[in-house]
Simulated scan of single mutants.
Amino acid sequence: MNPQMNREYILSFLEEILNIPSPTGYTKRIMERIGAEAERLGFAAEMTHKGGIIVTVPGRDHAGALGLTAHADTLGAMVRSVNASGTLRLTPVGGYMMQSIENEYCLIHTRDGRTYTGTILTSHPSVHVYTDARDFKREEANMEVRIDEPVRTKEDVAKLGIRPGDFISFDARAVLLGNGYIKSRHLDDKASVAAIFGLLESIRREGWTPARTLRAIITNYEEIGHGASYIPGEITELIAVDMGAIGDDLTTTELDVSICAKDSSGPYDYDMVSRLVSLAEQDGIPYAVDIYPHYGSDASAALRAGHNIRAALIGPGVHASHAMERTHIQAIANTARLLAAYAQEA
């Protein structure tokens, strides 16, 4: 059986979750939405103590399970301190270039539930004022958040309820184009979450059953390295679904499913990678096999935690990762197709 993926569903769900702020450590709202969507599709969903979601799909064979993992946490920041001028100094959550967030709109989330808008700038933001504005080094110490409120002092900011440790989320600015391209922040890794839910939707709509029980794990601490450090013990194989990087000598494009043979944590399981390649070729799915030297995945985290599993990594090709990203619906839908092919034969 070759299940068909509902691209309209995938795009609709992706657009929705892209617009839910979820920097690592501030993911409760998006996890509740993901759990509710799994239950709407008719699958059991449980929340882990860490705040991740595990969706269970019974298979024909209950001896061992196939794990799929994607992460809903994103890059973001926190308030490090409040400057005397009433701007905010930030500390990054996740790894990114400061240039990639300069002039970005953001939200400041206070611990008492208030939300304020702002803009991330350098402390020398204007060429009409600062002679070094063009060459001013874009580094953490030189970045600040301008709050869209009449604040001029630390005391003014304190009256808003903003304090160190509050989260800052970046506007996704998601755009879904008619030709299939999707440009947005946080496609890493919400595009993969949408691919897994495309798979789940196809199981419900077409009524097919995986060969083995599926445990789909949506994690919430991947961007800082320990998202899938816990996985259920019955999982024997784990496929991390995460974006494929593009550039340099890499061959993945935004239209391809990336199959990663090796990343910074080392090679992935030979048999699983070979099987994924074979299934992609069998089903006519455009793919590329690449090496990612500056990359780690939830599968890496699970292996480092000591889980007795075999692991692989696939996902849609995403350009300009950890900056203003872009992919294509073809890559997302085909990632779901490849997962479905593997799940039927596992």
Rank of each mutant, 00 (worst) to 15 (best):
N6K: 06
N6T: 00
R7F: 01
E8N: 14
S12E: 14
E15W: 08
T24V: 00
E39H: 04
A44V: 06
K50Q: 09
P58S: 06
G59V: 09
R60T: 15
D61I: 13
G64Y: 10
G64L: 13
D73G: 04
L75F: 07
A77W: 00
M78T: 08
M78Y: 00
R80T: 00
S85Q: 09
T87D: 07
T91E: 15
T91G: 11
G95V: 09
G95K: 12
Y105K: 15
L107S: 07
R114M: 13
T115Y: 10
L121V: 10
S123Y: 09
A133H: 12
R134I: 05
K137E: 14
R138G: 00
E140C: 09
E144L: 14
I147V: 13
D148S: 14
E155D: 06
I168Y: 03
I168E: 02
A174R: 15
G178K: 15
I182L: 14
L187S: 02
K190E: 01
I196M: 14
G198E: 05
L200D: 02
I203R: 06
I203M: 14
W208C: 03
A216S: 09
T219Q: 07
A228H: 03
P232W: 12
D249G: 05
T253V: 10
E254A: 13
C260G: 02
A261L: 12
D263K: 13
P267W: 05
Y270F: 13
A288Q: 02
Y292G: 02
D298I: 05
N308M: 11
N308T: 10
T327M: 13
H328P: 02
I332V: 12
I332C: 07
A333D: 01
A333V: 05
T335N: 10
T335R: 12
A336T: 01
A340V: 03
Q344F: 02
